[in-house]
Design a protein around this nucleic acid. Structure first.
Length: 276
DNA sequence: AGGTAAACCTGGACGC
DNA sequence: TGCGTCCAGGTTTACC
């Protein structure tokens, strides 16, 4: 489900609810997610105040006073909601982080639901960077990411440019939806070898990535099946998708039918006329 | 080292 | 209605 805009939407939805709140208890109903949930999560979180919610790539970091962080990844089907503490538990509600009541109001719970269990809840000790966060590429919305960077890094690479763009060691946060959209916007065929894309066209691609991700965040992300923000709202970017999910439909630009094929095991849609 | 494919898991859509 | 097949927003791991 979630690429950078959906994770950032989740972060923005969570932050105001979690900032400064006291964690009362942690309930693990199903500790076997992508990886087992480390013992520290249930042992060290209760009694601590949340100091912030950050995002790096598609990971969320919930920081607490001790300097430790809970590291969350939503995988393909994960979602985080802030709910009244007495909300009935549903299928695939794997983890609850109970928040102490503010004043005399009722308490709330941060609930992690993930049908496919590709998501994860891990632990990053104070002062350390989790192994999974090492070796990641730059944030696409930062100044470290631009067309020159893509051009230099791609020299000699034979993998398709779409595969290159989705490689989290190249740039983080771009998944299957936004890779297709960005390449469509930039007029680059997803099949083209990464090393065979010019500097000029990488400038257009980097601009497209930034623009599309920024716009998707402003729309609250893309809801295809099940993405939902912490407040329960869907994202509204789906209606603005030009390529993803439109195989066989007319190209919005030239009207010719959009092509579809698997590239790097992922369904890919593009226009054979507008993208070279 | 780069490139590719399998693997992890569940639910929904579809065809028969 | 039921069953088999295919597909899905991610990423590690293994292998060439």
């Amino acid at each position: 489900m979630p690429e950078l805009p959906e994770v950032e939407t989740t972060r923005r939805g969570l932050a105001p609810h979690l900032q400064g709140r006291l964690i009362q208890a942690v309930t693990l109903r199903r500790p076997d997610l992508r990886w087992p949930i480390p013992a520290e999560v249930a042992r060290d979180l209760p009694g601590q105040r949340i100091t912030g919610v950050r995002r790096r790539a598609k990971y969320l970091l919930m920081d607490v006073e001790s300097g430790d962080s809970a590291l969350l990844h939503l995988g393909m089907s994960g979602s985080l909601r802030v709910l009244p503490a007495d909300t009935a538990v549903r299928a695939h509600d794997h983890v609850d982080i109970a928040l102490a009541a503010k004043g005399r109001g009722a308490g709330q719970v941060l609930r992690f639901n993930d049908p496919r269990r590709f998501g994860s809840l891990l632990w990053q000790p104070a002062g350390q960077t989790h192994e999974l966060l090492q070796g990641l590429g730059p944030e696409p919305l930062s100044d470290d990411f631009d067309g020159d960077y893509l051009f230099e890094l791609s020299r000699g690479r034979k993998a398709p440019v779409k595969t290159f763009l989705m490689d989290q060691a190249v740039v983080v946060g771009v998944g299957n939806i936004y890779a297709a959209e960005s390449l469509y916007r930039a007029g680059i065929s997803p099949l083209r070898a990464a090393g065979r894309v010019s500097r000029e066209r990488y400038l257009a691609l980097a601009d497209a990535v930034k623009d599309i991700l920024g716009h998707a965040i402003a729309r609250g992300g893309t809801t295809l099946r099940d993405f939902i923000s912490p407040d329960g709202a869907p994202g509204y970017f789906e209606q603005e998708l030009s390529a993803y999910g439109r195989g066989g439909e007319p190209c919005p630009r030239c009207g010719r039918p959009m092509k579809q094929a698997n590239i790097g095991q992922r369904a890919t849609v593009w226009c054979g006329h507008c993208q070279k």
